[in-house]
Amino acid sequence: MGCYWSKKAKTPGYEDPAVLAAETPFTVNEVEALYELFKKLSSSIFDDGLIHKEEFQLALFKNKDKRNLFADRIFDLFDVKRNGVIEFGEFVRSLGVFHPNAPVEDKTEFAFRLYDLRQTGYIEREELKEMVLALLHESELVLSDDVIEVIVDKTYSEADKKGDGRIDQEEWREFVLKHPSLIKNMTLPYLKDITLAFPSFVMSSEVED
């Protein structure tokens, strides 16, 4: 007992699975399974036990050079310490928000921070338009600027209840309550079966949940 994990403790940013399990919807076994995934992702280009943006892009798009506004924002939010890499603890805590059992409030807040591109505490109209343009670009959908303006205006006038030209957290929460499908992208059903994805780990685990 003990030797198995003491080896892993040498990885930079490694954290005790029991601590991470206590802070997230994952069980200890699931955190350990996530470590298997983390090791794979964090060694795909640079073998340093940290997920670099290129490694994140490679896993997400099968292309290390493919950049995308939303992928950049997701990476930045996962990179809590803002040091340009995702450490194991950051990875587990952030993925925890995407767990089907994570609180809706956490998902709503994460989405707000994601869409608050310039981190001003508000989702501004310009940011919303920028995100719509990014989505259209990645989907190769073509809409006229007039149509885009109508879509953004309509959404904005509905969400910006106070009418001050920006969407704050409270307005965002109300808007999500009215349109719960907006945070569907904050849930990964797959995370419920994470130990099934990495069964080799479960065989070697000595920790019981």
């Binding site: 919303l128 109508v150 953004v152």
Partner: peptide, 25 residues
């Protein structure tokens, strides 16, 4: 009709949210 779309609904469909791709072997 595109004009009836909710802008946030639209952006939530970005492929970047397919985080299950991270788990592909």
């Amino acid at each position: 009709k595109p004009v009836s779309m909710n802008a946030f609904e639209l952006i939530s469909r970005s492929k970047s949210f397919n985080l299950e791709n991270l788990f592909e072997k």
